[in-house]
């Protein structure tokens, strides 16, 4: 599994470098989008995974779920940081500013805050049993905010995010190679996340 994953990752990187045509007017560095989108995807997946395992822990009191919940959050925190940094670079290249509080940037920023708060809480509670309970409760409380933010933020902030280049509306503009590589990269990142969850838990 591990070797296949490494091969797949290398193949995708090669495809991004050689196969994907340069994005119009943005230069080669803009290919960082192939890193940004998958890491953003995984940070959201990890967030829900953490909440899912938190709920399982509260139901079963099986501490292995607490370990999984914590692991998903730690991995999610790393992915969300990578995604934010790569996104800021892409933003600078595309719109000339690293940060502009567009809805999706805001969402990911809130995700950083939640992950950070969760990990701080874990660090602050020394008793193992109490830590497991308290952090599971916080994980579930924080997951409630996400649907609301997704609903509220686009109304509050003007969006610069690129539907024309990347989303369904822009499918005309998007090369099918680009789309396939992007989807492959997202799948690859998800598999890497699952692999990290499994290896660390065994």
């Amino acid at each position: 599994m591990n070797k296949i994953l490494i091969l797949l990752t290398l193949a995708i990187i090669a495809a991004i470098i050689f196969l994907v045509p340069p994005i119009k007017g943005l230069g080669d560095l803009a290919k960082i989008i192939f890193f940004h989108v998958p890491t953003a995807w995984v940070s959201v997946i990890a967030f829900f995974a953490s909440a899912f395992f938190a709920a399982k822990f509260l139901r079963t009191r099986d501490f292995s779920f607490d370990v999984l919940s914590a692991r998903a959050a730690s991995l999610g925190f790393v992915f969300v940081l990578l995604s934010t940094i790569s996104g800021a670079i892409f933003s600078k290249l595309t719109w000339g500013a690293y940060w502009n509080w567009d809805p999706r940037q805001t969402t990911i920023f809130v995700l950083i805050l939640i992950y950070g708060a969760y990990l701080t809480l874990r660090a602050a509670v020394s008793d193992e049993k109490v830590r497991a309970k308290v952090s599971a409760v916080y994980s579930l409380l924080s997951v409630l905010t996400v649907p609301f933010l997704v609903f509220i933020l686009p109304r509050m902030y003007f969006s610069l995010h690129p539907s024309p280049v990347l989303n369904s509306a822009g499918r005309v503009d998007m090369d099918s190679t680009v789309l396939i590589v992007l989807i492959a990269a997202v799948v690859d990142a998800t598999l890497i996340f699952i692999q990290l969850m499994r290896r660390d838990s065994s």
Partner: peptide
Amino acid sequence: TSATVKGGLFPILLFPVTLP
């Protein structure tokens, strides 16, 4: 309440949850 280190923890936890 169960945290051994409390300084500043409360607003850190509360803020993201009350953002909506």
